[in-house]
Amino acid sequence: MRFSTLLSAFVVVATGTTGVSAANFSTETIATAAALNPGNFYGAPIRPWNVGHTPGWYYGNGKAPIGIFSILDSVFCGLLDILPFFHCPKAPHNPHPYTRAFSNLNCGCEDASYLTYGLVEVVEDCQAMCESISGCIFYNTYHDVYAKGYPQFTCTLYKKVLTIGSASYCGGQHQPDGSINHIINSEGYYKSSPTA
């Protein structure tokens, strides 16, 4: 409770330069925005290959998935712009070139260099997310079939270049409806000129 009060005060102070008003956001929305930080893996502390995982955010122009609290739309991004942890993707002035490491696999990556994961509509949106997260140099997209019923791509970000050898998460998690998920259309991309 105290954290939310302090964060609300911060937001009120910060509105002078951005024009965003704290009155537009509930305490819950502010707390959700504050959870998008590196210490919380940007809202996704449980990695997607572990049981109990939930995407930390949704970014795209499609219909936002039910149950995802951090929907990166223009209103929520206005709030994120005044917080120090996470900012929505913007077209970079000099985007990094990316090279495909692998494609069309039936397993996603697992690695200790995990940064966060969320959902996107198209692969290019995952690249935009990688560009917006400090330290991201590799992203992996795939369809997690049956996992929580999300039709979007899973977008997982990492802070080191991975290879096909890291693609070891093939699903196998039991779902509430009794089905077992599996992975399809897994692709991995790395920044051709990685930067710190």
Rank of each mutant, 00 (worst) to 15 (best):
N40D: 12
N40K: 09
F41H: 14
F41C: 09
F41K: 13
Y42D: 06
G43A: 05
A44C: 09
A44L: 08
P45H: 07
I46T: 15
I46Y: 06
I46N: 02
R47D: 02
R47W: 01
P48M: 10
N50F: 12
N50G: 01
V51H: 12
V51F: 12
T54M: 14
T54D: 14
T54E: 14
T54L: 15
G56W: 13
W57H: 10
W57Y: 15
Y58C: 01
Y59F: 15
G60D: 02
G60L: 03
N61M: 03
N61K: 05
G62M: 03
G62F: 00
G62R: 00
A64F: 05
A64L: 07
A64W: 02
A64D: 04
I66V: 15
I68V: 15
I68K: 09
F69R: 14
F69I: 06
F69T: 10
I71D: 04
I71R: 11
I71H: 04
L72A: 12
D73I: 10
D73C: 08
S74T: 15
S74R: 13
S74W: 06
V75F: 07
F76P: 05
F76D: 04
F76E: 05
C77Y: 09
C77I: 08
G78Y: 10
L79C: 06
L80G: 05
L80T: 06
L80K: 10
L80F: 08
D81C: 04
I82P: 02
I82A: 01
L83S: 01
L83M: 04
P84C: 03
F85P: 01
F85V: 01
F86P: 03
H87A: 01
H87M: 00
C88F: 04
P89W: 03
P89N: 01
P89D: 00
K90Y: 01
K90E: 01
K90C: 01
A91G: 01
P95L: 00
P95G: 05
P95C: 04
H96Y: 04
P97T: 08
T99Y: 05
T99G: 09
R100D: 03
R100T: 14
A101R: 11
A101D: 15
S103V: 03
S103P: 00
S103F: 10
S103N: 11
S103G: 11
S103H: 12
N104L: 09
N104T: 08
N104F: 09
L105M: 13
L105R: 15
L105E: 13
L105F: 13
N106Y: 10
N106W: 07
C107S: 15
C107N: 11
C107W: 09
C107Q: 12
G108V: 07
C109H: 05
C109M: 10
C109K: 10
C109S: 15
E110V: 14
E110D: 07
D111R: 06
D111E: 09
D111Q: 06
D111V: 05
A112P: 03
A112L: 10
A112C: 00
S113L: 10
Y114C: 05
Y114H: 08
L115N: 02
L115M: 11
T116Y: 07
T116V: 14
Y117I: 05
Y117D: 14
Y117E: 11
Y117P: 00
G118M: 13
G118S: 10
L119E: 14
L119Q: 14
L119K: 09
L119W: 12
L119F: 13
V120K: 08
E121W: 09
V122I: 12
V122R: 05
V122G: 00
V122Q: 12
V122M: 08
